[in-house]
Computed example of a mutant assay.
Amino acid sequence: MTVTVFCASSTRVDGRHVAVAAEVGAELARRGHTLVTGGGVQSCMGAVAAAARAGGARTVGVVPAGMPASQEVPDGANDELVLVSDMRARKAEMDRRADGFLVLPGGIGTLEELLEIWVARTLKFHAKPIVILDPHGVYGRLRELMEHLLDEGFNRPAAVEAVHYAADIAAAFDHLEAEHRLLSAALQQT
C-alpha cells in the first residue's frame, strides 16, 4: 500500500510531534508500505521519511519547483524526488499516488491538504481511506467544529464519517489497511 502522509514541516513544532512522525515512519516500514510526503527534510515531514527509510521503506517526496529554502528544504535521500510546478500540482501528485491518507498535526498547509482530500471523498471523487492520527488532541477542536457544522445543517453525516480519527499509531494503520482491503475487493468485483 502507498500511504500519503500530510504533516508539519515547521521547525517550530514541539518535539513530541516530531517523535510521533518518526514512529509513524517506522510503523509504515514495518508493515511494508511505501511513503509519499511533501518531500521536505525538516520537522515531522523529514522525521517520517527518515524513519521509514531506516526501516527499509521506499519513500517518495513531491516538491514544488522554486519552493524557498526558508520554507522547505528538499530531502535528497528520498528514493524518488518528484519536482512539480506548484503547490496545486504537488497535492495532485501526492493524491494520485496514494492508496490512503494519514494526516498528522500540522498548520494551514496540512489543513488545506486534509480538507481537499476530505471534500473529494465526500463528493465521491475518491474512496481512499483518510485517517487523522492525533495522539495529543491537536485536532480536537476541528472534530468539534465538524460536528457543530453537522448540527447546524452545513455538513452532511457522510462528510463527518468520511474521516476516521485515531490516537494510536497501530490503530491508524489498521484502519487504513482494512479500508484499503475493502476498496480493493470492491474494485475487483466491478
Rank of each mutant, 00 (worst) to 15 (best):
A8Q: 06
S9M: 04
T11Y: 05
D14H: 15
D14T: 03
G15A: 10
R16C: 00
V18R: 15
A19D: 15
A19Q: 15
V20E: 06
V20T: 15
A21V: 04
A22R: 14
E23C: 12
E23F: 06
V24F: 03
V24S: 05
V24N: 13
G25N: 11
A26K: 12
E27L: 02
E27F: 06
L28E: 02
L28D: 10
L28F: 05
A29S: 08
R30C: 06
R31L: 01
R31Y: 00
G32A: 00
G32W: 02
H33R: 13
T34W: 02
L35F: 08
L35H: 09
V36H: 12
T37Q: 14
G40T: 01
G40H: 03
G40D: 01
V41W: 07
Q42V: 01
S43E: 01
S43R: 08
S43K: 03
S43D: 05
C44T: 13
A47R: 14
V48G: 10
V48D: 14
V48Q: 12
A49G: 07
A51T: 08
A51N: 12
A52Y: 09
A52W: 13
R53G: 11
A54W: 03
G55M: 12
G56D: 01
G56P: 12
A57N: 14
A57R: 14
R58T: 13
R58Q: 04
T59Y: 07
T59S: 14
V60W: 08
V60R: 09
V60I: 15
G61S: 11
G61M: 00
V62T: 10
V62W: 02
V63P: 05
V63W: 04
P64N: 08
G66H: 01
M67Y: 00
M67K: 00
Q71T: 02
E72P: 02
V73E: 14
P74H: 05
G76T: 15
G76L: 08
G76N: 09
A77V: 02
N78Y: 09
N78I: 03
N78E: 04
D79W: 01
D79L: 04
D79T: 11
E80S: 10
E80P: 07
E80V: 06
L81S: 05
L81E: 06
L81C: 02
L81H: 02
L83S: 14
L83G: 07
S85N: 04
S85R: 15
D86P: 13
R88S: 13
R88F: 02
R88G: 09
R88L: 03
A89I: 00
A89P: 05
A89L: 01
R90A: 03
K91R: 15
A92W: 03
A92N: 10
E93W: 06
E93H: 12
E93K: 14
E93V: 13
M94V: 05
M94D: 08
D95R: 11
R96D: 04
R96N: 03
R96Q: 07
R97F: 03
A98V: 07
D99M: 10
G100M: 02
L102W: 07
V103K: 13
V103L: 04
L104C: 12
L104Q: 11
P105L: 03
P105Q: 09
G106S: 10
G106A: 05
G106F: 04
G107E: 10
G107R: 11
I108F: 14
I108R: 11
